[in-house]
Amino acid sequence: MNMDIVNITAISHTFFYLLGIPGLEDQHIWISIPFFTSYIITLLGNSLLIFIVITDHSLHQPMYIFLCMLAGLDIGLSTITVPKALSIFWFNSGEISLYGCITQLFFIHSTFIAESGILLVMAFDRYIAICYPLRYTMILTRSVIIKSCVTIYLRGVVTIFPTIFLLKRLPFCKNNLLPHTYCEHIGLAKYACASIQVNIWYGIFVLVITVVLDIILVVASYFVILHAIFQMPSQDARHKALNTCGSHICVIFLFYIPGIFTVLVQRFGKQIPTHVHILMANLCMLAPPAMNPIIYGIKTKQIKNRVSHLLFQRR
């Protein structure tokens, strides 16, 4: 028994190779174009959004502060994943150390959970603004906003932190070729030559108490919000209230729907080629960060006016 442990430890891999999108290697250069384009849009769009919110004092309100946080997380999520994917597509540079892989997946998962938390808080913000407009500033004070932001970040870090130790305990003596553009928890764990039941169950537990719970609370919040909106006597008031929620609803669908669809395909679409799974997983990482600033820029009047002023003030 002891000799078996020694032998497994001796051949345990310390480096892995991300293959990008297996089956489409000859298309990597073309696939890199939307990756690169979305990353540039993410950096420019979200940076502009953060700049506008910080410099315009009229936007120093809870809704825009949370939006600024979402933009920062979008930049972080894209920066964690896209540059490595581009290095694979352009230079075939897929080598990554075990600790580098664990670090990347830690930040990917924790940032994803933090974004889900931001969307929940933004739904709560819209709930207070529409259902209790006179108490809005009394409820969402500076202290509450700061505590909410800290709690969101800590939740992502605390829930994902144990996966570091769950992965470090595993000996990786199987194939060290990872068919993906980035590292993720179970995708790495399944290459271990030991039981990963704890990893699987903990992954499900984290998903349920974070993202699944957030989805339930967001849906419940918007049921109450929409009920309150359609009870308003004035059509103009209803239209204005719906307009203020429109951009957030679009972002919610863009964030959750691709992820839910990807999980369903991975669970039930066993006959679907691997490269389709990988492309869909990357869609979840590329689309929301790139589209969020565009959605808010188009749907939010204050931000649209501010962007127009910045772009055309000289003219």
Results as ranks from 00 to 15, higher is better:
1 M>N: 04
2 N>P: 00
3 M>P: 00
7 N>Q: 06
10 A>E: 12
12 S>R: 13
18 L>W: 04
27 Q>N: 11
32 S>L: 01
32 S>T: 04
33 I>D: 05
33 I>S: 05
34 P>R: 12
36 F>N: 04
39 Y>I: 05
42 T>E: 05
43 L>W: 11
48 L>H: 04
49 L>V: 06
52 I>F: 03
52 I>S: 02
54 I>G: 00
59 L>E: 07
60 H>E: 03
62 P>A: 08
65 I>W: 02
69 M>A: 15
69 M>R: 14
69 M>K: 07
71 A>L: 09
74 D>E: 07
75 I>V: 07
76 G>H: 00
81 T>Y: 01
83 P>H: 15
87 S>H: 05
87 S>K: 08
91 F>T: 09
96 I>A: 01
101 C>W: 05
106 F>R: 02
107 F>W: 09
108 I>V: 14
110 S>C: 12
111 T>L: 09
114 A>E: 07
116 S>E: 05
119 L>N: 01
119 L>K: 00
120 L>N: 04
122 M>F: 02
123 A>F: 02
127 Y>K: 15
131 C>K: 12
132 Y>K: 15
133 P>G: 06
140 L>D: 15
141 T>G: 13
143 S>N: 10
146 I>T: 10
146 I>V: 10
149 C>Y: 03
151 T>H: 13
152 I>R: 02
154 L>A: 13
155 R>V: 15
161 F>N: 11
162 P>M: 10
163 T>M: 10
165 F>M: 10
166 L>P: 01
167 L>R: 03
169 R>E: 07
170 L>D: 03
172 F>T: 01
172 F>L: 04
174 K>P: 01
178 L>R: 02
179 P>M: 06
183 C>E: 06
185 H>V: 10
185 H>E: 10
188 L>T: 00
190 K>T: 15
191 Y>D: 06
192 A>V: 11
198 V>A: 11
199 N>G: 09
202 Y>C: 05
203 G>I: 08
209 I>N: 12
210 T>N: 09
212 V>C: 09
212 V>D: 05
213 L>T: 14
213 L>E: 07
215 I>C: 14
218 V>D: 01
220 A>K: 12
225 I>V: 09
225 I>C: 03
226 L>S: 03
227 H>G: 00
228 A>W: 02
231 Q>S: 13
232 M>I: 06
239 H>S: 08
245 C>T: 11
245 C>D: 07
247 S>G: 10
248 H>I: 13
253 F>K: 04
254 L>V: 14
254 L>N: 10
257 I>H: 00
259 G>F: 03
265 V>T: 08
268 F>P: 05
268 F>Q: 05
270 K>S: 12
274 T>R: 09
276 V>F: 11
277 H>V: 12
277 H>S: 13
280 M>W: 00
282 N>V: 01
283 L>M: 09
287 A>L: 06
288 P>D: 03
290 A>K: 04
291 M>K: 00
293 P>W: 12
293 P>M: 11
294 I>W: 14
294 I>P: 07
298 I>H: 03
300 T>W: 00
300 T>N: 11
303 I>Q: 04
304 K>Y: 13
305 N>M: 12
306 R>P: 00
306 R>W: 03
307 V>E: 02
313 Q>I: 12
